[in-house]
Design a protein around this nucleic acid. Sequence first.
RNA 1: GGCAGGAUAGCUCAGCUGGUUAGAGCGGCGGCUUCAUAAGCCGUAGGUCGCCGGUUCAAGUCCGGCUCCUGCUACCA
Length: 693
Amino acid sequence: MTRQILVTSALPYANGPIHLGHLVEYIQTDIFVRFQRLRGHQVAYLCADDTHGTAIMIRAQKEGRSPEQLIAETAVAHQRDFAAFGVSFDHYGSTNSPANYEVCTGIWRDLRAANLVVERSVERLYDPVQKTFLADRFVVGECPRCTTKDQYGDSCEACGATYTATELKNPRSVHSGAPPELRLSQQLFVKLTPLQTFLTEWTQRSGALQTEIANYLAGHFLDKPLQDWDVSRPAPYFGFAIPDAKDQFWYVWFDAPIGYIASTQEWCARTGQSLDHWWKNPQCEIVHFLGKDITYFHTLFWPALLHVGGYQLPKRVQIHGFLRVGGEKMSKSKGTFVTAARYLEHLDPEWLRYYYASKLSSKIDDLDFQPDEFVGKVNSDLVGRVVNLASRAARFVESSGLSARYPDDGGLFATAASLRETLATAYEACDFREATRLVMTLADAANEYVESKAPWTLKKDPARSAELQDVCTVVLNLFHQIIVYLQPVLPQLAAKAGALLGSPCDRWELVTTPLVGTRIAKFEHLMTRVEVAKVQAMFVPESATGTTPLPAPTTPPIAAAVLSSSDTLSSDTLSSDTLSREPLAAEISIDDFQKIDLRIAKVIAAEAVPDAKKLLRLTLSLGSGPTRNVFAGIKGAYEPDQLVGRLVVMVANLAPRKMKFGMSEGMVIAAGTDGHVFLLSPDVGAEPGHRLH
RNA sequence: GGCAGGAUAGCUCAGCUGGUUAGAGCGGCGGCUUCAUAAGCCGUAGGUCGCCGGUUCAAGUCCGGCUCCUGCUACCA
């Protein structure tokens, strides 16, 4: 049965660029969407920019232009980034559109008709310079309890006190610096208590929500009367003026989710469809993808609005966690706040799609980007196992094509085909980690098959050419199945593989029918390997280009240490003020220090490396155990002969590093910079193997 | 402060309603192979399942307490 599915990703705020954190959501949604399309279902994937609110208004003002100019520019950038990552929206709108105003007005009318709108006078903070009301977080001052400076208007990060913004000492607007005033504002509220029974029923029993979310709502909001929701903001405000209220605008969170409907309407108008067919049709499954930070809006207010407006409620709200990098929050100063654009300067978008897929489950857990793991997944899973299959087989059948009949493969093809329901279940549940894991077991089986049939041996015997063709037919068919299964994750790879095999990989059921008798195109690499250095290069601290000191690298210690071996030695000439030239790194714990195993080592042999400008090859002894081969960038400062026999300090547990001239199994500690390098020596008595504490 | 989650091999995670010697992938180590983008195959070592107590014939799994981590927190619940 063909399903009709409307899918949305949360609307990105038009106040900043798309970054790797956003992409967790858009890639996750896109994989789901492409999976459904692959299965032959009718899918509409909709999104839009979220354009209203104080933040955008203030920023545009600061930049001396209109909010419309700002959001127009952002819209272009956002859509360019999404396209680059293969996010396949059917339509991308804007909440600042006539369509959105129309839908907002309709729902507003329904709220009024249901008697759910009430007016109330509220005391609010006002910035007299910017002439705008201020949310609590736009007011800073000293904590009234502990007097810590620069605390926001709601709570103190130092002592944990909570208070209202008016209690701050020396309060000031973050926009203008002016002390805020208190002013009365007539605001409009949506009453939610009349909808409480409905919301309780829907959140707890519809099955649309993940269990954690249902529990959260039950224990936090639905256990007591829901508060009325303040949906208006006084002028000036960048947004839609409420048609039947003077100088009041809809709060951005009122019109933002309505943007889902408005975007659909624009798409329907463009393609000659009916909006009701998508939003008022019980047969249509509405699925929202969003981050956990906006759970509350999408699981209480939004269903309330839909309910009152007579729209279908979401069949499913799929909530995901946040992206972390190296176990920490993304940070601009640490360089881990990576925009989509910066990623694209260094790396292939399909790598990220696969990496995220391999980590995503339907849980709400945060997802941690780990550079080493990223490299491992791409190189080992995609290049080493999947793409390698085509690489191992395609060349043997470039002239002959595939066998006319599918040969006996011991049941491999049938087994892979029979996995399709299990895989479909995993994709359907957004358990992409499980899906990719299962596909990799198929790739393993296929590689074992190659090994057991040894086509390279068959090739040497012209009498066995038919057998060779059969083996390659099997391998390429297994490859084809794998690619079809991965198509939602890797659409570009699927397109390239389709061209190679002369058959598209665009329908799920293709995995049940072997390709036979077709020609195979000349083999070209389908995907390149990724190098660690390229991933590291992406993490550039924001301050790196300025004059502020570089913070300690957050990249894994291995990579950082490897970089340091060349960086410190190749940097500029010695400065008179060495400390300011290379400022102190961030503080570390004793545990951090103890990870580094520094040892006394004896130089057994030293020689210049031919063709290397700066390197000496050292053979180091730690007293016992095997000697270490270490390349050190000290050629300009030391003669090999003078080093033999002396003691040095080395990092003994540094991961071996493959260098152009061989493996380097450690790092020799030295001070100074290029041309002025000074090795460290212990006092008399220290022996090779001694650890430094 | 409140609330929702989490803690299982070096890393990322599976372990359903309690039931044989706790699993997978990656990484490590050893061997094999050379068709392939130094890719592949085989083998192997790693865990007092955060801590304490309880229920039970039986607990990673259930209950209580504790510790630590993470997130959310609207005009703050």
